[in-house]
Design a protein around this nucleic acid. Structure first.
Lengths: 337, 337
DNA sequence: TTTCGGGCTGAAAACGTTTTACATCGAAAG
DNA sequence: CTTTCGATGTAAAACGTTTTCAGCCCGAAA
């Protein structure tokens, strides 16, 4: 990779560096013939403008950073893929910020936008990795997705977790279930709290007494789903349906049930949340709440681009609907017991 | 975000910009007291060096790009997470290049390193997105992982697909299977060809006549696994075991078997490849070949860092072992037929 | 006392681009 | 024939760092 500069192109095509730059950035400002000459030289030499020279001058990096707690998660992966497509269309590159839930990593990635390495940031975590003092005024272009951060004036792309959970519960209630357990997700994830809220509201509306023992804490991992299920099976009065607040935990729960010889949904109905790629391929196929991953990614990117393009309108809050997908892991409540 | 520069810090702490820069990059070159003064000013003002000024001067972006066909794939996601961790440790950020198998996107991301936007590139695709003429000489720092590119002098991190497939077949043969089918992956993925090669070699060593009808083409997607399984079920002489060349296809195949009422492994044994997170949670748990994702990511990054740090030793070829994980989707061949 | 050298620091050049301000030229207008 | 103007091009400054080069100061050696 030789050091090919704009000056070389200028020399090659017999014009000044300025003209070369204009030809590349604002072709309409330069005469057609000159333009042709320059383009020819560019093509022949395989010149690519050095990003740093350009960025230094324009103060624009052309990067955005996407912060997620875990790229390995199917939901996050789906979202980031959509983001990447949109970003590329708009001429941006995406810097991956897998935070693994660690605040230090979150701050590290937040730094990137302060240092100019990125122009904006997409936050799918529940913490705002910026100092609180100079907060409200000068936040960088930013949109908060999925896990709602309790700060005013943020652009947000959320999903209707409350309604989603309600739909799930209603489905179970309609099947005759009364002893409905929930396996909660990560305790400090807003999404988890919202789902719990919807869960409890729906139960109440159905006239079902809330029962603490049917609320077991998980953390969105398959392992926690397994543990939770085991705990539930030890109960004197087992639930007839278990609503896991994501598919990973549901899949964990199902594997435990299989191991112990319970029939799904014959003995216990299982319901998930997310509709990951494998949900429909489970045995039995998992009833779950479908997340519009692509739409989430697209909407987030759209909001970010709006901010990046200078116009900084009223912060928007987009709320996308979820959709109950009934499959075969849920069925009528067992007649007896 | 105000425009806080090195000069501001210099002024604040009563030294020259040069000293500030040194304090930040080569602290050992500056007197302890001066250092303290400067650090104080830096802390108080919250200064972060502008990446472009720095990059422009040093010709180092601090970014690497990783190119993968699909981030949504569990294998890729696992690898990139490991990469990200290692990269951050070494002070690099990772630019996500999800190519979706499109050559245009591959070239786009390859450009990033020509334009200086990235210092190196991790290629998990089977094509080299650089022009062939000025090839051998001046390739950027690069390592090729998983899908081997047939070009001399590349640093590679591979997995022993041939042996992995052999291990799989041997396991099936040991269980008494003779009619063993394979569901192939993406036809132009080298990994697929290697697995096929191992598959065929193992069959031959076991003295089993190769049978064309037991080789059905897939493309590594769950859907293709489903289709392939359906095709296999239509055969006059059904196979007693099916080796799917990745877990996604195996999961698809299993769902088809369930739908048609076949017992796994009672009627047909199923074997996957990859050992994704959900493999052990399937019903029944999937026998498969485990991929050391973390090691792949780490080794790749290690090789890349070696190149980035200037020393450009003989190109290395790291080959990581795979491990057969026997679970319950494979069992003895049915006695009859 | 002078000389030397080591430890620090500062001035200034350099990195590669974009863009402002200005120059040139030809043609149209007076 | 001069003036004006638009179109096109150029020179040079600016962006924010890093780093070379040189210089200063001070203590040690001669």
């Amino acid at each position: 990779m030789s050091k090919l500069g704009i000056k070389d192109i200028a020399a090659r095509s017999g014009v000044s560096p300025a003209t070369v730059s204009r030809t590349l950035r604002n072709p309409e400002l330069v005469n057609k013939d000159t333009r042709k000459k320059v383009m020819k030289a560019v093509r022949e030499s395989g010149y690519t403008p050095n990003r740093f020279g350009s960025s230094l001058r324009t103060q624009q990096s052309g990067n955005i950073v996407v912060m997620m707690p875990d790229i390995t998660n199917q939901v996050n992966a789906g979202i980031i893929r959509a983001i990447e497509v949109e970003a590329q269309k708009a001429g941006y590159s995406v810097l991956l910020g897998d935070t693994q839930g660690q605040e230090a990593r979150e701050r590290h990635y937040a730094q990137m936008v302060s240092s100019g390495q990125a122009d904006g940031i997409l936050l799918y975590t529940h913490r705002l990795p910026f100092d609180l003092d100079n907060l409200t005024a000068n936040l960088p272009p930013l949109v908060n997705g999925n896990e709602s951060i309790e700060v005013d004036g943020l652009n947000k792309v959320m999903v209707d977790n409350v309604q989603g959970a309600k739909d799930g519960v209603n489905h179970l209630v309609a099947l005759g279930h009364r002893r409905i357990a929930a396996v909660l997700g990560d305790n400090n994830a807003p999404s988890n709290r919202e789902r719990l809220q919807g869960f409890q509201q729906a139960l109440q509306q159905a006239g079902i007494e809330p029962d603490e023992q049917y609320l077991v804490q998980g953390d969105y991992t398959t392992e926690s789903g397994m543990k939770a299920m085991e705990a539930l099976l030890k109960l004197r009065k087992r639930p007839t349906a278990v609503f896991c607040f994501n598919d990973d935990m549901a899949i964990g729960a199902m594997s435990v049930l299989r191991e112990y010889g319970y029939a799904i949904p014959g003995d216990i109905s299982i319901m998930g949340f997310d509709d990951i790629r494998y949900a429909s391929l489970m045995n039995p196929p998992l009833t779950t709440i479908h997340q519009p991953l692509e739409e989430i990614g697209q909407a987030s990117m759209r909001l970010l681009l709006a901010q990046l393009s200078g116009k900084n309108p009223v912060p928007q809050h987009i709320q996308l609907p979820l959709r109950l997908v009934v499959r075969q892991s849920t069925g009528p409540a067992p007649a007896s017991d």
